[in-house]
């Protein structure tokens, strides 16, 4: 039986991990490869690396990092952040990334999704959607959730599926950082409306939240950052607990 996926997300700036990381066993707490190796050994199902650097050198630095990750990690990983052209995608895949995550650039130019899907296959196209409720309506936001648009979440999710996205990474800006649980009602509606997998993001605070997002939110995968980085939740504990609750999980 296909299992639900647990995905730690690492923020990267200039080739280094950001956010405080509470891994005493790391020789170099800022080295994304060391941290990724630990997650892979601890049964993370996939990893996401989100590049937030804004330097001119960023493409080259990121490609080098991606190659280094691919050399050392034996599970799939996705790279996102600032991807705006087919050339950006080509460089990252060539460096060894399994998937890329496209966000704002897809909203600005939706054809980018079909161009990438056509050239490299849908399996490597994750479309990240950040959204937040405005007057009870879910609206897509850009630039890490800072810039609102008029675009309806559900309409956009359907459109990216039609354009060839292989998966959707949905982050609720209303839940992100709250540690109060995922946006399960919305996730469940998305899951019913679409046939491609949905990755839930934003709101993870405890193990119950993961159980809820798989059972109530019907999510195919759940992504989180700080609860893993600060060891508030250890992935092996999380997974055995979920398994004992009858959720299909790889241990």
């Amino acid at each position: 039986m296909l299992t639900k996926r647990i995905i730690p997300c690492l923020d990267i700036k200039n080739g280094r991990t950001v956010k405080g990381i509470n891994f005493l066993e790391l020789r170099d707490a800022g080295d994304p490869v060391e941290l990724a190796k630990i997650y892979a050994e601890n049964y993370a199902d996939e990893l996401v690396f989100l590049d937030i650097s804004a330097t001119e050198e960023r493409r080259k630095t990121l490609a080098k990092l991606v190659e280094n990750i691919a050399k050392h990690i034996n599970i799939p990983f996705t790279v996102g952040g600032g991807i705006s052209s087919v050339e950006d995608v080509a460089l990252l895949l060539k460096s060894g990334a399994d998937k890329v995550s496209i966000n704002s650039a897809a909203v600005k130019r939706p054809e980018l999704i079909s161009e990438v899907a056509k050239r490299f296959g849908s399996q490597c196209v994750v479309v990240a959607i950040d959204a937040k409720q405005i007057n009870g309506q879910w609206k897509v936001h850009l630039v890490g959730g800072k810039q609102p648009t008029e675009i309806d979440l559900f309409k956009w999710a359907k459109e990216v599926q039609e354009l060839g996205a292989g998966e959707i990474l949905f982050t609720s800006m209303d839940h992100d950082g709250t540690k109060a649980g995922f946006a399960n009602d919305t996730l469940s509606k998305l899951s019913d409306a679409l046939h491609i997998p949905i990755i839930a993001s934003g709101g993870a605070g405890n193990i119950q939240h993961f159980e809820d997002t798989f059972k109530i939110g019907k999510a195919d995968a759940a992504l989180a950052a700080s609860v893993f980085h600060f060891k508030e939740i250890e992935i092996p504990d999380l997974k055995s607990e979920l398994k004992s609750k009858g959720i299909s999980i790889r241990i």
Partner: peptide
């Protein structure tokens, strides 16, 4: 179910040397 199938699934009824030493229902 969702299509594409994305993620970890088990394999079983293993035959051939390709799966030597690999347990049934490995992911």
């Amino acid at each position: 179910l969702k299509v594409p199938q994305v993620g970890w699934n088990t394999i079983f009824d293993l035959k051939s040397n390709l799966f030597k030493g690999i347990e049934n229902h490995s992911y």
